[in-house]
Every structure is written in structure tokens, then in C-alpha cells.
Amino acid sequence: MELRSRIRELFQKGEIGSLIGYGRGTLPLSARPIFITEGGVDQLIFDITCGVNLAKYLLRKKPIAGQKVGIICKGCDGRAIIQYLTEGQLNREDVYIIGISCPGMIDPNRVREKVRGRVVTNYQMNGEEITLSGDGFQLTLPREDLLSRSCLRCRYPSPPIYDTFIGSPKDRVEIQDEYRSVAEIESLPAAERWNYFQSEFGRCIRCYACRNSCPFCYCDVCFVDQTNPQWFGKGVELTDTIIFHLVRALHTAGRCVDCGSCERACPMGIKLTLLSKRMEREVRERFDYIPGLSVEETPPMAAYREDDPQEFIQ
């Protein structure tokens, strides 16, 4: 496997001292983040199950003895790293970015929805179709039915910056209607829209798997956890859960790279990226900014410009 031989080479040349990558999980169709040195290279895998955004682990992993931390980067992991660099969270020289092209990642919630309790033991990809099979069943579905919604509208399967690349970088993909899900909700009458939000966010159990898997939720103390002052209730009243998700969307606006980690992590299958996507469009229209593409450009939420749109204070 090219992945393993290339990584072994990086260890041997001393380019990296440790690596954050993916290993096989214990469940069918699952992978897990792994943290290895040279001895662990044979555990490495990369396929459509490697959805977890690894960038966040860079905030915990520091170079040991001056040797860089290597990290396997899909487009969204790489973009999160760029965003970290603009936010001063990371030193570029501490990290060795190993780019890899992303085939799009499955969303375990969507798989569960389709297989309804049956156990998948294997899968096969044939172009635009994925065949899931298990004890006594086989299910062939279009890719769109199983992949993360974020991956289906992703323009950047490869990281914009890298130190080395496994395989060859894929070009930017042209996506026509990446804000379709947002537009669909926006087109609904207010009452229906509210019903929709109620049914989605009313399921939230405040476990914070979304927040804790989000590369950009790295605050020491999240606003929801603050007690002095306590901004709002910690229970599962709808108003409280909705405020949590709305404020999180605001705090990640202009930063979120739509990796979809939050949505895949949610045990209740809430379509969380609807809010972040809405904010992404806002930032793009107002500031002509797409997060995680350039280290040089200052993110709009961290910059002041004379010509910033500011009609809200006029």
C-alpha cells in the first residue's frame, strides 16, 4: 500500500517523529484516529470510513524532540489546519502535512438509516454506487444516499497546502448547488421552517459530540458551560438547545470548513450542517471569503476593513 510505504519513508528520513492518521475501527465500516510512531505504520488505512477530522488532535499533539507531527490530511483536515494557522493556533513548522485525496466519507447515521438494524460486514464501491453486504443481505445504493452531506457538496477533496502528497491531488470540484439544503429550508413558510427546526433540534441531547468533534470548537470554556454568568439553561428545553446550536454556528462562521464531523458524530442524526452552511454562504456573499484556503488572507471575523458591510449599525 502506497500510504504505508510513503509514511514509513517519512519516518525513516526523519521528516516526522509521530503521525496522526487513521486505523481500522472495531465495527464494520468504521475507522478511528490513531497516533503512531514508525512501529505503528502497518495499522494505517485510508478509505471512505475515515471521516473524523484529525486537525483537532494537532492542538493536543506537540512535536517531540523537535520532530514534526505528521498528519494525514483530506481536503477538510488540511483546510482546518490552514484556518488554525490564520487563528494563531499552530506553528506551520511543527506540522508535516501529508495530503491525500478524499473519495467522500460515509455518514454512519445515514448508513444506519438505510440498513435498519441489519449488520454490514463489507462494502464495495462501483463508481457512483456503493454496495453494502452482510449476513443474508446485499444493498446497492447511490453514493448520495450514504455519504456525508458535506462530502456531497465538497469542492476541495485535496488539502490546499501540503508537504507531501499520497497519490495525486484532485482538482477543485465544480459544485452547482452547494447551498441547496439551505435554500430548501429558506423557501418554506416561517411556520413550517420552525416546525422543521423543532423536529431536528428538539432531538438534541446536549452531549456535545458535535462541538467536541468540531475542529473550531477549541475554546477552553465553551459559552454553554460558563456559569458566571450562565448565559442560558443547561437542560434540553428547545429554546436552550436551539440557542446552543445557533450560537455555535455564529462562533464558527467564517471558520467552518464544512468537514461534516459534527453531523457524523451526532447520535441523534440531527442535520447540523444546515446552520453552518447557512453561515458559510453569508460570509461568502458579504466578504467574498471561503475559510481554509489561504494562510495569508485574514479571516473576515478577525479583520477590520473600511469597506466592511455594516448596514446593521447604520
Partner: peptide
């Protein structure tokens, strides 16, 4: 701990986890 996200998904979905907080809200102790 290297891998754990420190979220509460496992505890909130667990049939036996029972840790709780007591909070004073505007009208009631909850």
C-alpha cells in the same frame, strides 16, 4: 485519552450513567 473527545455521548446514551447537576433557575431548582 489521546483519542477521546471528552463529550458526553457515551454517558448520555448509557442505561446506567446517572451523574447529575443541580441548578437554580429563575423559578425552580432543577
Amino acid at each position: 485519552a489521546e483519542r477521546c473527545l471528552s463529550c458526553a455521548l457515551c454517558t448520555y446514551l448509557c442505561p446506567t450513567c446517572h451523574c447529575f447537576d443541580i441548578q437554580d433557575e429563575e423559578k425552580a431548582r432543577v
